[in-house]
Write a protein that binds this DNA or RNA. Structure first.
Lengths: 246, 246
DNA sequence: CGCCCGGTTGACTATGGTCAATACGTGTGG
DNA sequence: CCACACGTATTGACCATAGTCAACCGGGCG
């Protein structure tokens, strides 16, 4: 079971303090949040909420990785969101989740019951402003993902996923030591396949191919090292790229 | 060239009055919008803004259809948004568009220069609330699209697109006469291909196949009739489906 | 009239999916 | 301590779906 974080954690000490939905709050506003927030922990692989079920709260991911995905009756599934620390889950005004929400690793969430949170949105423009901004970032990310899903080859998909994870891990603060970038994969091959719209066999083959060509090296199954980021970026199909990391 | 709409159109008479970003405004708020809004017309096929360029305004689509798309250097393109009347373009706080914006048909936009619009967002919570809601709807739509792009077969993609267009046209007020649903396609085969992550040949073949099997009939190239919506919905791969239209 | 654009259709091919065998690592129980 | 099983990953052989390349159709317009 996950290591517990209890409600005694002060917002001021929170690891996602400056990136989450509360990022722009002043200390007096944080106090109000502290009154109504509560934490929940989920072990890796748990289903937090099935598509169509009621989610009685909205939440920020504090620690760990969780995913949003859609499943067709015949079992085909597509991951539509990968939520890293500071990302927000849930939609004010709608309590039924349109997606399956799953904990990919052990996860801690900072939760708010819907009603108080919605009141908060009205009362604290700092929160609703930030939520709008985060939602627009998510929309941009989803659209970037549409290009990957719709137009890229299997190899480009893998390279793109690795590049995106490298960027996100870098921005959170893990990552890079002296030219050599290390990417911790939070996902199994199957989860990567669901993310990329591929089969797990194709994911495995393409990772093997990148390894064979020296573009990446593996350290165990879940840790990827990239000697030269630019070579990996070339394999994504998009050129100059939004930059970052080199 | 597009039929002109001039700034003299009163917000109260606007066809998108109740669905656009201004939907929740009171009459006094509309008066403030009226002072700063201006209209622009674009002929079918025009590029409104290239990816990376500055868009000096944000806007609502009043009339016509436009698209957002991403292009890779080798020319592969993926449409990432299809904007029908009442949809919003642009992001407060960012002036460079990450996407190519194109008018699919003749289009009229209701525009606001960025600066006054951003002030408005602060001053009029009705607008920012509505913008948040619309952005979340867009995000849900993008995620639905990710499932289509990542996991559906060509035939399911076509059926899904037709179903979605039917829903949207119905909600705008065109559509349905006595069981027989008619869908006006605003897109060429090539644009559909860009939307669905297919080639135009595959689009053409799948439409022909659906026609051959009597699931749809064509009236010219751009008008699709669906004798029995439920048969079309069956071909989308998702079952019960969010309902609507029958 | 002839050209151009959008669309359809056909023949062939390539990319990625399917099915199946095998490998590897970890935790459990004899 | 080893045997085994289970979950995860890799690899191979074969196949199906959609992409490529090309010919052709048909309507509108100069």
């Amino acid at each position: 079971m996950a290591k517990n974080m209890t409600a005694e954690v002060k917002c001021g000490d929170c690891p996602i303090r400056h990136r989450a939905v509360c990022a722009r709050c002043e200390t007096d506003e944080l106090e109000r949040l502290e009154e109504i927030k509560f934490y929940r922990n989920y072990a890796a692989g748990q289903t937090i909420c099935w598509a169509g079920d009621d989610m009685p709260f909205v939440a920020s991911v504090v620690r760990g990785v969780s995913s949003l995905s859609q499943t067709m009756e015949d079992g085909r599934t597509q991951m539509v969101g990968l939520l890293l620390p500071s990302d927000f889950i849930g939609r004010p005004g709608r309590s039924r989740s349109p997606y399956d929400v799953t904990s990919v690793s052990d996860v801690t969430m900072c939760c708010f019951r819907r009603k108080p949170f919605e009141e908060l949105l009205v009362a604290m423009p700092h929160v609703s402003e930030r939520l709008l901004e985060m939602t627009m970032d998510e929309l941009d990310a989803a659209r970037e993902w549409m290009l990957i899903l719709g137009r890229k080859t299997a190899r480009e998909k893998i390279a793109s996923m690795l590049t995106i994870l490298a960027r996100r891990e870098a921005s959170i603060g893990l990552a890079a030591l002296g030219g050599m970038v290390t990417i911790e994969l939070p996902l199994t091959r199957e989860a990567m396949a669901d993310y990329l719209g591929l089969t797990l066999e194709t994911v495995s083959r393409q990772i093997s191919a990148l390894k064979r060509e020296g573009i990446i090296t593996l350290n165990g199954k879940r840790s990827v090292q990239v000697p030269e980021m630019s070579r990996l970026v070339m394999e994504t199909g998009d050129d100059m790229d939004g930059g970052v990391i080199t």
